[in-house]
């Protein structure tokens, strides 16, 4: 037990008394952690963007003038029963008129409505159809184009929409495919950087290790403070990472919210908050383990005195 406390004392002594060496080692680790966290953030933004786009996309089915409420409700129920369809919303002619008036169209375009009397509504019913997944929109579009619906459906811009959905879907596949390679490469680089940082740190203190051995210290007594120092490096690097990451998140969050005009699409601060222990705890555990392994390997040859 005495030896255990001494080992902890020596670890703290080594950590603070070799201040510049500790600082350099922690900086290298911090850079590796920052890269990894950046990738985690980018991966979240990618996933959230695709999910957000998925939520925002719906098929607007314009129905022919004169379609009755009952016919529209029947069509909506029929579409809603399809496996690919998540939700069908009926938009009444009155709602369509209000939407048109509130839209971003210029005043000239809006003045078109002036040719109608105030109690006259040129708009018909329409349906907003939302699919479960982006990939299912083409199937939904095919179903809407069926002969049996053609007496009611009055839409003609299906093809443009089809290509838009296709592009998003391809983009998502490419991102998913290459992000793993990028993450893998970054992780590999980080591991190599950390391993070599520890090796250099141990190398610069090799005389200290040899002296300890020459005055009668056992391998365990010499090695353990260095291993604990590695854990301290990992802890300090993660604490510094948290101190750096949160201001960055708070800085970029308003821009992301503004871009999607919805705080719920990409809420990166909420994501880091709810996954705090998973993200930073895992990084600490992996880094500490890596440091322990690197120290054990690097110190081995200097213990043979």
């Amino acid at each position: 037990m005495i030896s255990f406390f001494r080992v902890i004392k020596f670890a703290f002594q080594g950590f603070f008394r070799n201040f510049w060496l500790s600082l350099v080692t922690i900086t290298m680790m911090l850079m590796a952690l920052f890269s990894t966290t950046l990738l985690i953030g980018i991966d979240y933004i990618k996933e959230a963007t695709l999910e957000g786009v998925n939520k925002k996309v719906d098929i607007l089915v314009s129905l022919k003038p004169g379609a009755s409420r009952e016919e529209v409700e029947l069509l909506a129920t029929d579409l809603d029963s399809q496996a690919e369809v998540k939700k069908v919303t009926i938009i009444t002619p009155e709602e369509n008129k209000v939407l048109y008036e509130q839209s971003n169209l210029d005043e000239k375009a809006k003045k078109v409505l002036d040719i109608f009397d105030e109690d006259e509504n040129p708009f018909s019913f329409s349906l907003a159809v939302q699919g479960n997944e982006l990939s299912q929109y083409t199937t939904i579009l095919d179903k809407i184009s069926q002969e049996k619906y053609q007496d009611l459906v009055d839409s003609s811009d299906f093809n443009d929409f089809d290509s838009f959905v296709g592009k998003i879907e391809n983009f998502s596949k490419v991102l998913n495919k290459y992000s793993w390679y990028i993450i893998g490469a970054f992780l590999l680089i980080s591991i190599v950087v950390i391993f070599n940082t520890i090796r250099i740190s141990i190398y610069s203190r090799k005389n200290e290790i040899m002296i300890m051995k020459l005055v009668g210290a056992g391998n365990w007594f010499v090695k353990m403070p260095f291993i604990l120092e590695g854990v301290l490096y990992a802890f300090t690097a993660v604490v510094l990472l948290i101190a750096i990451i949160y201001p960055i998140i708070n800085f970029i969050q308003p821009s992301l919210t503004m871009y999607f005009q919805d705080v719920n699409v990409i809420n990166i601060s909420e994501y880091f908050q709810s996954n705090f222990f998973l993200i930073f705890g895992t990084q600490f555990a992996v880094l500490a383990l890596l440091n322990i392994l690197s120290t054990s390997i690097a110190i081995r040859k200097y213990l043979k005195v």
Partner: peptide, 8 residues
């Protein structure tokens, strides 16, 4: 060369 621990 004495072999003292420089940081102690």
């Amino acid at each position: 060369d004495y072999k003292l621990l420089a940081k102690k």
